[in-house]
Design a protein around this nucleic acid. Structure first.
Lengths: 231, 231
DNA sequence: GGACTGATACTCGGAACCGAGTAATCGGAA
DNA sequence: TTCCGATTACTCGGTTCCGAGTATCAGTCC
């Protein structure tokens, strides 16, 4: 079966490393960690070796040499091939230029939010707000310290981006919380009614309410479908 | 081995569905799609059945009945258990309140951006900007149409969130592109120097440059490590 | 009435993921 | 000297993911 190919960004990171010089897998991992890339790319030994295996099968890297020092496990050094260099450029280009369809935990949670009561949700948002604040502060402090130590901004773009996204998330959460608190969020009554039926164990009402909501949402889906971004 | 438990949000969506009424797997998938949840949660038949299997093993759902109509494949109807209701509430609460450590494609790409030349990157950002613009417009248009058709805002929060995040991403990309174009991004010279060595095939220079950069970044990693958010 | 289309309801096997486990070496302190 | 913990360098086997494939049935168009 056709391999999933460009699924795991760790494979791109491996290509990127080998584009600098030949290395053995463990060294790749160490280098990536050294450069702090592990904050942006999930590095896991299990995955690393499967990914290297897969790059090898696809002819994007090749075995350079296999060394054995003493009785330690042998290290296989890999080098990037021409095909690999091409794939690296092409894949990285795609990742930079095309917004990918990604499924974040929080978006999923928002879409299922109706399963809790507005009061609970409000409290949870308050927690999130505070945790986001901590993360943003920590990020900004790291950023400042790095600059002071003379690290060029260029090497901090991922961090800048992450901070920017967290700030945007925080702004959204604050706004949504405000709308719930001030009762200006349209649909809040239905939500509360549904929740109290839930609490009362009113099965009849529940099924009815669920059906009504579903009917409303179905129409939305209809609309959304046509405009959804490509795979 | 302990199962990964709360990894796949599809499992939460299944619990959420069964919290409304008992259903069989295919019906769950159909319901979720009907409600447009598939825009926020990856629904895949293969995964659906493994996820149901896993919920069953963990005692969060139970078989209600197994029906066979005619000679069609039999449908197993599942119902949520008390443990399942508890897990649903707890898990959803966690997802709403705690920002998860997520690895996005674009953040990974930014951290590897140095592998392409500034000029290329600028062109790629231009493409991204345009694609983001299209997505944002499409999203906003869906949003407006849904509201006009009387769908309460409440059911559109995931969409609002997604649009907000895309807008923030766009703002970041525009800013970064501007800094490269106006040559105010610190480190740009090093980047260009590295790229021209690359193009000239200057192995000596490359290794040296890579080593120097690595040394700089290593310090950053040191800083960052201590402040990184929890697992 | 038969052929086709689209929905229903899964099944299957291979790929990918994951992180604990292993086993050797090295540097330093007691 | 010897013991300890850290580092090096993977290996292993279970879990999860995935999407093409299969088989049935309900309409519907000619």
């Amino acid at each position: 079966m056709a391999s999933r190919g460009r699924s795991n960004p760790l494979a791109l990171a491996v290509l990127s490393c080998l584009n600098q010089r030949p290395m053995h897998p463990y060294e790749i991992a160490a280098t990536l960690r050294e450069q702090g890339k592990d904050a942006s790319i999930k590095i896991n030994y299990g995955s690393l070796y499967t990914v290297v295996e897969s790059l090898l099968r696809r002819g994007l890297i090749a075995e350079r040499e296999t060394v054995r020092e003493g009785r330690r496990p042998e290290r296989t050094v890999y080098a990037i091939t021409d095909a690999g260099r091409h794939e690296h450029e092409d894949w990285l280009g795609e990742m930079l230029s095309r917004p990918a369809m990604e499924f974040t935990q929080f978006e999923a949670a928002l879409s299922l939010m109706g399963g809790l009561s507005p009061r609970e949700v409000l409290a949870l948002f308050e927690q999130r707000r505070s945790l986001l604040h901590i993360e943003i502060s920590a990020g900004e402090s790291t950023y400042r310290v790095c600059l002071e130590q003379g690290l060029p901004e260029l090497f901090l773009v991922e961090l800048e981006y992450r901070i920017a996204m967290r700030k945007a998330e925080m702004a959204y959460v604050e706004d949504l919380a405000r709308r719930i608190r001030e009762r200006t969020l349209d649909g809040l009554e239905q939500w509360e009614a549904y929740q109290s039926m839930m609490a009362a164990g009113d099965e009849e009402g529940l099924v009815g309410a669920a059906a009504r909501m579903q009917a409303m949402i179905a129409e939305r889906a209809e609309q959304g479908r046509s405009i959804e971004p490509d795979k």
